[in-house]
Amino acid sequence: MSGTTPQGPEMEIVHLLRAVTVELGLHSARFAQRHAMHPTDVRALIALMDAARAREEMTAGRLGAALGLNSAGTTALVDRLERAGHVRRVRGERDRRKVVIEVSEGAVALGRAFFGPVIERAVGLLETYDERERAAIRGFLTGVRDAVAEED
């Protein structure tokens, strides 16, 4: 290309994705502010809930790597979330020597109360698409996620 930005329906979708990303970030920031949390705290809770949903144990080391934090920063983060009652440190189920971080039921309920309406509307929208269309949406979003991850 000669330095020009491509135009067309594809770019409209890219710009919409950027707008969605900005709005989700602002929504997350409002949650963090209302609950006296740092935005990294919210990202940590999301990472922990994603790990739990995948039935994967999350150690502090894995959490720090997922968030791009060093060891000291991860310790401070987990300590802060633990003091607030959002997480707990427990022994691993597979390896009792390992300490894993789990999200408290209270933190899950807090997140569900705030993010639940947006999630329900998104699910409702997805239900209006057939399986082929949902597969296309899934493929597109997975591809964008992977493209961004490659840049890191």
Rank of each mutant, 00 (worst) to 15 (best):
N70W: 07
A66E: 09
V103T: 15
A47M: 01
F115A: 12
G64Y: 01
L63A: 13
G64D: 04
R121H: 13
M49W: 05
I46Q: 08
S71D: 12
H86N: 11
T59S: 04
T74F: 01
E105T: 11
R83N: 12
G92V: 06
V42Q: 01
L45R: 03
L81N: 07
L110V: 10
G106S: 10
F31P: 01
V87D: 01
G111V: 03
G92W: 05
A36L: 10
A52Y: 10
D50K: 02
V123C: 02
V123E: 05
L77H: 04
A60P: 00
F114E: 11
L125T: 10
M49D: 13
M37H: 05
R91D: 13
R121M: 00
R121L: 07
G116A: 03
G85P: 09
A109T: 15
A44E: 00
D79R: 13
F31G: 03
R94T: 08
R94D: 04
R121K: 15
K98R: 15
V42F: 00
A47W: 00
A32K: 06
A113E: 13
D95P: 08
Y129Q: 14
M49K: 08
A54Q: 14
A52E: 15
A51L: 07
H86F: 13
M58K: 09
E105A: 14
D50V: 06
D79S: 12
F114M: 09
S71I: 06
H35F: 06
G68V: 08
G64K: 02
A72F: 14
F114Y: 14
E82Q: 08
K98P: 03
N70R: 15
T74V: 02
G111M: 12
H86I: 00
A44G: 11
R53Y: 11
A84N: 08
H35A: 02
M37K: 11
D79H: 15
Y129P: 09
N70D: 14
L45P: 09
T59W: 03
M58V: 08
V100F: 02
L45N: 02
L63Q: 02
D95C: 09
E105G: 06
A52C: 12
A54H: 12
R34G: 15
H86V: 02
R34C: 04
G111P: 14
V87T: 08
A52K: 11
V108D: 10
Q33D: 03
I46A: 13
H35M: 03
A65V: 02
M58S: 12
E57D: 12
V118W: 09
F115G: 04
G116F: 05
I119R: 09
A109C: 01
V99P: 03
R34D: 04
A113W: 02
M49N: 09
R43A: 09
R88V: 05
I101T: 10
P117W: 00
R91Y: 06
R97V: 04
L110T: 15
M49S: 11
T128E: 07
V100M: 01
R43K: 15
E82R: 13
A109S: 13
